[in-house]
Amino acid sequence: MIIKKVIPISMILFFLIGCQATSMEQPNDEEPSYTKLSTQNEFDQQLSNQVKEYLKDNKDLTSVQAVNDEEKILITFEIPHMKRFKLADIRKELKKDIKEKFQIKKVEVSTDQKVILELDKLEEEIQDKSVNKNELKKELKRIIKLSKKQT
């Protein structure tokens, strides 16, 4: 009877340990992917570019998006799946880091899939120059609001 109790539990344990082991075998040494936005725009994305350039060295990230207007910046990023357990901590640290490094007052950081999608779209629009200053500001505000929604 005891054996019957032990087997399923040990099966689960093996399974979990197995997963852990495979994750350690694949270190991620690729740089995060990002798009460098043109600075010859109606709206200067210099700051976003600097942030991306800075985050390029961060091996934890697989991709980075960032858009700013004159007072705030929204940064989104993705990390390797096995590190997602620590996602909240990484997010917090990155926010603090950027705030200190670049002396920006309003830094918003998100890792939400939806926010990444929306910000990606906004980056593309900036690249295509299909948004003007006001639209960008409005859109950025909307995305930040979306990222803070709880229910």
């Binding site: 939400d112 899939q113 939806k114 926010v115 999608l117 979306l146 990222s147 929604k149 709880q150 229910t151």
Partner: peptide, 17 residues
């Protein structure tokens, strides 16, 4: 969940409901 995130205005947080 993924369907709601991609095709509607839900985030990861709000798509649960």
């Amino acid at each position: 969940t993924t369907f709601y995130i991609y095709f509607f205005d839900f985030t990861e947080q709000t798509a649960g409901n």
